[in-house]
Design a protein around this nucleic acid. Structure first.
Length: 835
RNA sequence: GCUCGGGUGGCGGAAUGGUAGACGCGAGGGACUUAAAAUCCCUUGCCCGCAAGGGCGUGCGGGUUCGAGUCCCGCCCUGAGCACCA
């Protein structure tokens, strides 16, 4: 027989009176009517800007991942508001781009009609989620009133000399006759028709983000961002230190002899020089050949007659490969050019090859190959039967030990076969060799970045037209700012086809326009800009919505920016976050902004999986927010999303889990209904309350939502354990604590408790350390490192008293057999006896 | 290959170097009910034991420490990102 247990003081059945399907719409309506979520941009005290990455409004509707992020942000925003800030929590739509365009193509609808539908659907879903968004400050990147200023941003970069046009490769499907994004190329083939994709050279607009590489890197040390995001940016910027070394190309006469070249043999007036970048100048004595990228401009000059046909054929083949497969590791191929260059260290001639494992767009497009100490060069030398020389040895190796594999370590290694530098440790050798080569004029210490300039041209339709006009007499002319926006025309056939490159290029009536400078007939740029340009500055626009004559109002911007807290997915760790930092820096340098970093604090949220697996349509395990909200209510859905794992790590959505959160909220409601002002609050409950206030406040501040919710659950368990009616002073603060998570119920409860203002304007409960202090604490007692019992003592007990109490405990004392050698005492925690 | 996360009960997950498993789900038992649902109460890491109690436990192997999920060294597995970056 089990004891029946104490009769509960109140039944949660009373919670039957709480129906989210009624209460949630009620409060959503009230909030709208009363303007509860309206931010006083002009006068609100203590401004605080919480930003979340805006969604792409897909036709499928809001993804639970979006809602997870938005809810996490909303809780933080509400918390800041309850703590006395005027909070701006805006949301908008990132609606341009290839996703929308492809989807529209597939459905055969126009994006201009598709997007408004999607946005309306998103808006409906977002409102149901109970976000504290002030929709008066929203943006839609496809609205001309927004992209007018995107085009303005382009013009500022142009004005600053940071936008330029050059030829660059794009993926080209010869069958569909269209430009493909990298994601549309699958194993070198067009994802739609399966044709082999080629690369094509097109003139495209670039931004000089690489000029800012060092600054983008340095500033990372000064901003409060998720460490993982900073690391991703550092890797992407990819700074490497090394040297540029010059290799003089030998003329055919010099090449005849294979012996050391002497200065007197140099007969060419201006010999060709191949510059290479290397991070390992210490290995220069081991450079046994050079390799040029197939696109290297010197290739034609240096290729010998005998090798000409082979080299040109190789280059042509490389040019046909698409960009994606070109960059995938594969078997080494290459062709000898027939020419030699002089290794400036050994003064010996070495052959010059061309191979596609060397990339034109990094370093100088040429390398010195050191097969003994580089894996790729080793592999290539093996395949082409080129000499492999050891110039580095471990401490336990002789200089003559043959290399079975490339030795790439530097630690505890010394130089060998390196002339006067033999025996030096690698790091010392590095410095000495660079200095030596610099003195001879054949090297220079340099820094290289992996970061490439940002290509913003898209040969597509669904984006803001790039505001440039080409004129036969005036050349490239920026559209005057007063003529913005350059409206994207509503054309019925926006499918890319064989008529040209960009769909807009088929519309003469659109692109033919008078030159703003001379008035002669000119031609608009027919490419549109990258979606990432839309999102590079959107955070500047939100608070200035309504200021129609400027992209962002100076006074408003001064008040609200930079962004106080930014939350988003780590999939944007590099591109979006880097581009918006860059754009902000440029606008800062031009005097438009007084800060150069847009986001003071950034936290990446985790990913939600379901039942242990990634959500996907094919797996059929996608969480549809509407269904869960309809069944459990938005409050329960929000709270469950935040409870299922740490916000910054994500978690596993299990359908059964939400019931626990629903129960918690129902119990809370029961307590609210039962609360009375009669009598006095219970000191034990009160102590737990103050501990809970502290825990919840601390946890929300670091986005520890799952543990904050757990703490509130613990509190309500304590509150209900007590066989009595809860006191008002035990319940009111809990309603405030739960308000960021379950705002509808909190409002309803707050009203029921007799308050007339919104709970969101009621402030945040204060925590009193005195009230939270325990009278007795449990002290763990260890004997020889093993837990042998616990004792209940005052928190400030002395070591001696604790020891006496421990030895008075029979269960503990029986383990204390020998003489005590040491006692470790951690007040309030444990007593460790060593014998 | 490189970089960054992560491996803890049946499950999701808690743990400033100090009582591992908070909180929740699930499961088992009970109360209420004609019954079910809902609600409420109790139990719930594993092993031995009737019990008292004892032993073992945070991916694996070492180490530091009175004390290690946590720190150090060496592995394994797994997720994500980058990837011929010289």
């Amino acid at each position: 027989m089990t004891s029946p247990g104490p009769k509960p003081p109140f039944q949660a059945g009373e919670a039957a009176g709480y129906d989210p399907a009624v209460v949630e719409p009620k409060w959503q309506t009230r909030w709208r009517e009363r303007g509860t979520h309206q931010t006083d941009i002009e006068h609100g005290r203590n401004p605080f800007y919480v930003l979340m990455m805006f969604p792409y409004p897909s036709a499928e509707g809001l993804h639970v991942g979006n809602l997870f992020a938005f809810t996490g942000n909303d809780i933080y925003g509400r918390f800041q508001r309850l703590q006395g800030h005027t909070v701006l929590e805006p949301l908008g739509y990132d609606a341009f781009g290839i996703h929308s365009e492809n989807y529209a193509l597939k459905l055969n609808v126009h994006p201009m009609s598709l997007i408004p539908q999607n946005i309306a659907n998103f808006r409906r879903q977002l409102d149901r989620a109970g976000l504290m968004v002030d929709w008066r400050y929203s943006v839609d990147t496809t609205d001309p009133s927004y992209y007018r200023w995107t085009q303005w941003v382009f013009l500022q970069l142009y004005k600053a000399g940071l936008a330029y046009k050059k030829k660059a490769a794009v993926n080209w499907c010869p069958n569909d006759k269209t430009v493909l994004a990298n994601e549309q190329v699958i194993a070198g083939r067009c994802e739609r028709c399966g044709a082999a994709v080629e690369q094509r050279l097109l003139a495209q607009w670039f931004f000089r983000i690489s000029d800012f590489a060092q600054r983008l890197l340095d500033n990372l040390d000064r901003i409060d961002w998720s460490e993982s995001t900073k690391t991703a940016q550092r890797n992407w910027i990819g700074r490497s230190e090394g040297a540029e070394i010059s290799f003089r190309v030998l003329d055919p006469f010099e090449q005849a002899g294979s012996s050391t070249v002497t200065v007197t043999q140099e007969i060419k007036a201006e010999p060709d020089v191949i510059k290479v970048f290397t991070t390992r100048p210490d290995t220069v004595f081991g450079a046994t050949y050079l390799v040029l990228a197939p696109e290297h401009p010197l290739l034609e000059r240096i290729t010998s007659d005998a090798q000409w046909d082979d080299v040109m054929a190789y280059r042509a083949r490389a040019g046909q490969q698409d960009i994606v497969t070109r960059k995938v590791a594969k078997e080494k191929t290459g062709v000898f050019t027939g020419s030699y260059a002089m290794n400036p260290a050994t003064r010996k001639p070495i052959p010059i090859w061309v191979a596609d494992y060397v990339l034109m767009d990094y370093g100088t497009g040429a390398i010195m190959a050191v097969p003994g100490h580089d894996e790729r060069d080793f592999e290539f030398a093996r395949a082409m039967d080129l000499p492999i020389v050891r110039v580095i040895a471990r401490e336990d190796e002789a200089a003559s030990t043959p290399l079975r594999e490339p030795l790439v370590d530097t630690h505890k290694c010394r130089l060998v076969h390196s002339g006067q530098f033999d025996g030096k440790h690698v790091a010392d050798g590095h410095r000495a060799i660079v200095a030596w080569l610099e003195a001879k004029g054949s090297a220079q210490a340099t820094v290289n970045f992996r970061l490439h300039d940002w290509c913003i041209s898209r040969q597509r339709y669904w984006g803001p037209p790039i505001p440039i006009i080409y004129c036969d007499t005036c050349g490239t002319v920026p559209v005057p700012e007063r003529d913005l926006p350059v409206i994207l025309p509503n054309i019925s056939n926006f499918r890319p086809d064989d008529s040209g490159i960009s769909p807009l290029a088929r519309h003469k009536e659109w692109y033919e326009v008078a030159c703003p400078q001379c008035g002669a007939m000119g031609r608009r740029e027919t490419d549109v800009s990258d979606t990432f340009l839309d999102s590079a500055w959107y955070f500047l626009r939100y608070p200035s919505v309504g200021h129609d004559d400027v992209p962002f109002d100076p006074a408003v911007t001064k008040r609200w920016l930079p962004v106080d807290s930014y939350i988003g997915g780590n999939e944007h760790a590099v591109l979006h976050l880097l581009y918006s930092r860059f754009t902000t820096m440029v606008l800062h340098d031009m005097g438009y902004l007084d800060f150069e970093e847009p986001y003071k604090k950034f936290r990446a949220h985790g990913l939600i999986i379901r039942d242990g697996a990634k959500m996907s349509k094919s797996r059929g395990n996608v969480v549809v927010p509407d269904e869960f909200i309809a069944r459990w209510g938005a409050d329960a859905f929000r709270t469950y999303l935040m409870f299922l794992g740490p916000f910054e790590e994500g978690g596993d959505f299990r359908d059964s889990g939400i019931s626990g959160v629903r129960r918690f909220l129902d119990r809370l409601w029961s307590s609210v209904c039962a609360a009375t002002v009669e009598g006095e609050p219970d000191p034990i409950v009160l102590r737990k309350l103050h501990q809970t206030i502290k825990k919840v406040s601390d946890d929300i501040a670091v986005l520890g939502y799952n543990t904050a919710i757990a703490a509130m659950m613990e509190y309500i368990n304590v509150l209900r354990k007590n066989e009595r009616t809860p006191h008002r002073s035990e319940v009111d603060p809990l309603v405030q604590l739960v308000a960021p998570f379950a705002p509808h119920m909190a409002e309803e409860a707050w009203e029921k408790l007799g308050h007339s203002v919104s709970v969101m304007d009621s402030g945040w409960p204060e925590y009193d350390p005195e009230m939270a202090r325990e009278e007795l604490v449990q002290l763990a007692v260890q004997v020889n490192g093993k837990l042998r019992g616990t004792i209940r003592v005052a928190p400030n007990v002395t070591q001696d008293d604790a020891l006496r109490a421990a030895l008075a405990d029979a269960g503990i004392a029986k383990h204390v057999t020998g003489e005590m050698r040491k006692v470790v005492f951690v007040p309030g925690r444990l007593l460790s006896l060593v014998q």
